[in-house]
Design a protein around this nucleic acid. Structure first.
Lengths: 110, 110
DNA sequence: CAGGCATATGCTCTACTGTGTATATATGCG
DNA sequence: CGCATATATACACAGTAGAGCATATGCCTG
């Protein structure tokens, strides 16, 4: 279970991260929102913590977890070489529109 | 093995996709470049194909594989809600630098 | 300090996935 | 046609990860 990719391969963990994306939460909140056994939440949080995806703050008896972005960033970086496959047309379109916008309004052929 | 995330959790498969990112390749090319047993390459390609990450074209005795972007796009989309975590400061920094650059050069305190 | 809530950990079991090895299928070529 | 090359598939095996259950630890309140 080393790679960041393996960590987010697990649906429950993605769900947890998804929750934390909007705001930090205690274990109990996650448990209730995701209807997932507490022991399971704790275990997944442990994995996420050890892999650097989250960190926790102690607040009385609760532990409040929040996102740590680095590993996700790594995934994002890995995707970079592939983005051209779906941004290509968009980029071309944007360049086209830029040209249109900057072109002296001389009247179009066609 | 349903989710796109599970598919790219496998290092060999990420390597194959990485290779195909730059250009399409035959099975043999992948085998040689990655120094990976042919049978292993074929199996991973099968998984990738069935999950929609690649498609193959028959060229005489060879099969040439190329990227199909959709599943990777899905991964990219999942990352969206997290991007603010690492673009936030950059944005703030950029805005700051913009302000600095535009500000009349009045001299600094400290 | 006792009891209760919040969270973490240990253990067992099962299922799955990647690997290696052997083999099948297909195509081109002499 | 027969062989070599290119690729795919079948099978058995080992490692591992997630689920469930029981239980431990820590902190708070009366």
């Amino acid at each position: 279970m080393e790679s960041s990719f393996a960590i987010i391969a697990e649906p429950s963990r993605r769900a947890i991260l998804g929750l934390l994306a909007s705001s930090e939460r205690s274990v109990g909140e996650i448990e209730r929102r995701l209807r997932m056994p507490q022991t399971s939440v704790s275990k997944h949080l442990r994995v996420l913590r050890e892999a650097g995806f989250v960190e926790s703050r102690v607040e009385a008896q609760r532990r409040v977890y929040r996102i740590r972005p680095e590993p996700l960033r790594e995934v994002d970086a890995w995707l970079a070489p592939f983005r051209r496959f779906w941004t290509a047309h968009v980029d071309a379109l944007e360049r086209h529109l830029d040209r249109m916008a900057q072109a002296p309004r001389k009247g179009r052929s066609r």
